[in-house]
Amino acid sequence: MTGWVLRRIGQTALVLLGVVTLAFFMAYAVPGDPARLIAGPNADAATVASIRHQLGLDAPLWSQYTAFLGRLLRGDLGTSYALHGAPVAGQILQALPTTALIALGGVLWQLVLGVPAGIVAAYRPKSAADRLATLGALIGLSAPPFWIGLLLLYYLAYRSSVFPLNGLGDPLWWYLALPTFTLGLAGAAWYARMTRTQMLEVLRSPYIQMARAKGLRERTILTRHALRNGLTPLITMIGMDFGYFLGGVLIIESVFGLPGVGKLTYDAIDQLDIPIVTGAVLFAAFFVVVMNFLVDLTYAVVDPRVRNRR
């Protein structure tokens, strides 16, 4: 077990380094000239040069890279171009609670909508309910979230005024209902499909047939045996979803005008504020990698077979 954990930590560290390196090239190597961006199109060459020097952009790439790594280790994601030198990390942390709240709501929606649909579909395969759930899931997967969000806004907030139009207010859950639903919809579809597949597999397995042969009641079979074994793998995926939602909120927060990390990034894109954009990307990727590791770790504790794999 210890050996496995150490090897997995090594792997994770390697992936993190790769993530950071990629982000570095994204932030500093690819774009034309950040100094020119900051100085504006009318600045003279001397101003641009002095800004370039201030940012350390005239140093060789390698020393820029090590400086970047050093700053990261201190939790410094750089400074924003557009927001008058505000630290990126601070901006992200400030916006994070709103985003975390939205992501949490999204996770709840996808579980509440997706898992029961998947169970119903798996329990009576090929039935009308199964077909409906399967087609519904496919539509959910195919619907662009920004469009669903705008439709909800148009019908439920603008035309009928059931829900608030945008922003945050009191009661909070009232303002978050539509954005979290929109965010969770695609996930719900995906969970429904996964649940169905998992449950079908479990329901076909010999120990369920054995339970049936023993004459256990269907309800007992479903709740005590099938659900427990079918859903465990799904639960562990939830951690990862938070990471992927950091991408989804980009659209949701802009559609619903919510002041989270997504809105921060969205605005930064408009202003070509690259440190904020890469900062957000880096933050999300870090989150995914660490979550991935924790999920694997939980798995390994729960299921010893995992440790011997690979």
Binding site: Q11, L14, V15, G18, V19, L22, M26, A27, V30, P31, G243, Y244, F245, L246, G247, G248, L250, I251, T265, I269, L272, I274, V277, T278, A280, V281, A284, A285, V288, V289, N292
Partner: peptide, 23 residues
């Protein structure tokens, strides 16, 4: 496998957005 791990660590949409806003 490590390269795919790295790329798959980024949320797809956010990664696309960042790459394009840079390029």
């Amino acid at each position: 496998s490590r390269i795919t791990d790295v790329i798959m660590s980024f949320p797809i949409l956010l990664f696309c957005v960042a790459l394009i806003s840079v390029t």
